[in-house]
Design a protein around this nucleic acid. Structure first.
Lengths: 119, 119
DNA sequence: GGTATATTTCAACAATTCATGAGTAGTTGA
DNA sequence: TCAACTACTCATGAATTGTTGAAATATACC
């Protein structure tokens, strides 16, 4: 992955609304959700939702699929994986201490010194 | 890691200058580099450098240590690991396809469909 | 004390991001 | 055809971000 694409993806993720969108879409897999369903679920205006969905799609973090008068949005697992991989491998040079939290996510905080889940 | 802290870190990383800073500091480990050395290495003005270093430190992605009239900056491996872990585990629910690129960074693109290194 | 070096802070400005509300375009079914 | 529904686009303004250069602060050396 090239740096400019990684920056685009990081910028897309660096926003509370868009992070919520990613998390909301995650459980729905490749089928995804229609824009209207997302808007109702997160209580957002149509234009605001469209603005943020565009940013995520442009960054290859989600994909869209038209069906009749609906547009379904779903997580782009490859794109999301690429960004995380870029951070971990290209950016951090696969540093063992940095990798630790990802490879062993179930270690308690007392063991790793890191927090990997909300309290 | 809490969402607000993750957003702060993602915002810090979503900038070309700061991404360069992280990559530049990575090889120097815990010893780090002084602000002056970084400024020379990346050819930046002192005030511009200070602005970006502050953002990275505030986001717990780097740490600083005063020594005489120098200030040394080094990667905060725990902080950086926490952000990546947040994305991978909290945000993506440890989705197997998303984890693939991080757990097996040396698979070729033809095997994974992902790119993990610059050409 | 005085000067040089290292770093940060500040004000001003340009550029970008984001929310809002109105308007537009395409699809469906009566 | 018309109305209802779904989603997107556009213009506006507020807020935030990033750059620049000057000034301030702090330390070291003579």
């Amino acid at each position: 992955m090239q740096k400019s694409k990684a920056l685009e993806a990081l910028s897309a993720l660096a926003n509370p609304t868009r992070l919520d969108l990613v998390r909301a879409l995650m459980p729905f897999g490749t089928k995804g959700l229609s824009a209207g369903e997302i808007a109702r679920m997160l209580d957002m205006s149509a234009s605001r939702l469209s603005f943020h969905l565009s940013a995520l799609e442009q960054a290859s973090l989600i994909s869209s699929r038209k069906a009749a008068r609906h547009v379904f949005y779903a997580i782009d697992t490859q794109g999301l994986g690429s960004v995380i991989g870029y951070l971990l491998n290209d950016c951090c040079g696969s540093h063992p201490e940095i990798s630790a939290c990802c490879l062993h996510p179930n270690l308690s905080e007392s063991q790793t010194g890191l927090t990997t889940a909300e309290p």
